[in-house]
Amino acid sequence: MGFFQERNSLALKTTLQADALRELSENFDQHLKEQLAAQKNAWQAKEDAYHAEIQNLREEKEEVICRYEEEIASADISTAVKISGLLAELEQEKQEKQELLEKTAVRLDERSRMIESVMSRIGVDVKVGKKSTANSGGPFIAIDEKYSESLLNRSDKYIKTIRKMPLGYPMRGRITSGFGRRSDPINSRPAFHAGIDLKGRIGQNIKATADGIVTHSSYDKNGFGNFVILRHGNGYETVFGHMSKRLVKKGERIQRGQVVGLMGNTGRSTGPHLHYEVRYKGEPINPKKYLSVAKLSFTVPE
């Protein structure tokens, strides 16, 4: 009886343990399924988030690409406009430069002809071209920089030459004694006058008629009194005599129009005047043609 009771008790326990084990197994499977489902949902959510992020990046990339393409297109248009503007400015500058060259060439040519006329008038052997369009023709050739440069060089050469030539009057005054033979004003004997005498007032400014260097600034009581001699180059010299005061020293460089002394009555003189003399290669020449240049009038186009 005890055995059967023990047996029944064990069978009951076995049944209870089997039920408990089956329930535990069912709960474990259910819990495992729930955990797997939850993990799967979490993984799916992450995957969806990744896909959404990738899509956002793609959209941002496409937006950036579109924006860059628009900026590049806009930059190309802007660059093209700038290049077009620069080309237009360059063409305008080129045209203005050509007009300036032509205008400058005309002025240089006119000035060269003007200087050639002066040099021809005083006896320098130069050919003066005449500007004429009658009975002429041929292909048009625009003035270029090389031609303008040649005109400029010619003009500069003429200007350097003419600045060393004694042109015009050294002072305002009336000629009281000309160049050449005359009766000496002191002893009335026939004599040769190597220059001209210009009457003026004591203290009047006496100016250089060309650029040069002072070779003499001295006093000669039996001759020119206070006198100055300038050497101008190209064989020219000028002499200023009978001054009351000398304002330059030997070796000093002088420019045309600079005051070299003051009118006076020193040395062998009968009254206030300037003895003005022009020498060429050491010999006195008649200053008349050099003085007459001051009366010439030229109009140079601007």
Rank of each mutant, 00 (worst) to 15 (best):
G2A: 09
F4H: 10
S9Q: 03
L10F: 11
A11D: 07
T14N: 07
L16G: 05
D19H: 11
L21G: 07
L24T: 09
S25T: 09
N27T: 08
D29K: 07
Q30T: 11
H31R: 13
K33F: 05
E34H: 12
Q35L: 07
A38R: 14
K40M: 02
K40P: 00
A42E: 03
A42T: 05
A45L: 04
E47S: 07
D48W: 01
D48T: 12
H51R: 14
A52G: 02
Q55C: 01
R58T: 05
E62P: 00
Y68K: 05
Y68S: 10
D76C: 13
A88T: 15
L90H: 15
E96G: 11
Q98H: 13
E102H: 03
R107P: 01
E110A: 03
E110T: 05
S112C: 10
R113Y: 02
V124N: 09
V126N: 08
A134W: 12
N135F: 14
G138R: 02
P139Y: 08
I141E: 10
E145H: 11
E145C: 10
K146T: 15
L152T: 04
N153I: 14
D156W: 03
D156Y: 02
K160W: 03
K160C: 05
I162T: 06
P166Y: 00
L167P: 00
Y169R: 07
Y169I: 04
Y169V: 04
M171W: 02
R172Y: 07
R174W: 11
S177E: 13
G180K: 10
R181N: 05
R182H: 09
A191E: 13
A191K: 04
I196G: 01
R201G: 15
Q204K: 03
I206E: 00
K207G: 01
A208N: 02
A208T: 02
I213P: 00
V214W: 01
N222H: 10
N222G: 11
G223F: 04
G233P: 14
E237R: 04
T238I: 08
T238H: 04
R246V: 14
I254H: 01
G261Y: 00
N265W: 03
T266S: 14
G267I: 08
R268N: 10
P272I: 12
P272N: 15
H273S: 07
R279N: 12
P287C: 04
K288F: 09
K289R: 06
S292T: 12
